[in-house]
Nucleic acid binder design. Sequence first.
DNA 1: CTCCAATCGTCGGTACACGGAGCATTTGGT
DNA 2: ACCAAATGCTCCGTGTACCGACGATTGGAG
Lengths: 150, 150
Amino acid sequence: MTFDGPAEDLMRHPGHLLRRALQAMNLLWDHEVSHVITSPQFAALNALSGEPALDQRTLGERISLDRSTMAEVVARLSARGLIKTARDSNDGRRKTIRLTPKGVATLQHLIPRTHQMTRRLVGALDAKEQAELLRLLTTVVSSNERRKTR
Amino acid sequence: MTFDGPAEDLMRHPGHLLRRALQAMNLLWDHEVSHVITSPQFAALNALSGEPALDQRTLGERISLDRSTMAEVVARLSARGLIKTARDSNDGRRKTIRLTPKGVATLQHLIPRTHQMTRRLVGALDAKEQAELLRLLTTVVSSNERRKTR
DNA sequence: CTCCAATCGTCGGTACACGGAGCATTTGGT
DNA sequence: ACCAAATGCTCCGTGTACCGACGATTGGAG
């Protein structure tokens, strides 16, 4: 028995393709959106624009980040002056997080760029295919929803 | 002007969905495949099964990892005794990498588990949709191929 | 044959991403 | 009112992932 190629063709593994696709997205993000604000940071700002004064854990649930990662992202956004944190007066355990005016401005500034980035990312697909990709990914994501965010 | 929700619906951003999908994949990987060998590590072993004695950089190109990350993955696989590295006698800069018997055995052992993991990941889609997802992701990945791996 | 540019690997720095342990605070059951 | 369980955040350890800089080595131009 000889080896003509790898044991598995990774190009047929959705997991591998997802990793590659996300790498491409991150690369495009740096070029087209910002090399300062990352996509998880953008997601956090965006979530706060709809629900101000979220506590850290809930914010993490909204954008699907665990506690540890959320803490780091919050620290960086805070250091950049895009958000402000405060202890919840009703619950001393919680940290409530709010956008600063600078955070709002940054978010508004980046939104068109994210659309441009998306166009480049999926530009090789026609409109129908783009919609289908969105639908399939949404199905995969929601069917694998995490039971519990530690 | 009031805010009824976030400025953007991230569920319509392919980039965000890719991140979520990859998170789901990684979670499944831990449960269904191995919490010791990660998916990039598996990819490396798999690539080596098809092309023994690759140098570190080329191995990275095969599975789409940059030199720094590849170095770390190689170090971990080496520490686990799954690969063996040696200086290339023809080119002192290069490190050639080979699977050990233990590496081959581990790869063979994990392959069925990766398929099981994939079934769970995309199980909510029918066969036709799974094939379509694979096709769309492949198109996105190849249309955003990196020009140069630093 | 001798430099010089290109190349390979390393290292340090930054940023996600997650689990587990630990601490403070809150809450629910009695 | 009290204490135990639950909860929110932090800290630590591990593992991708990438960039820029650096040293060693190679190979080609002159």
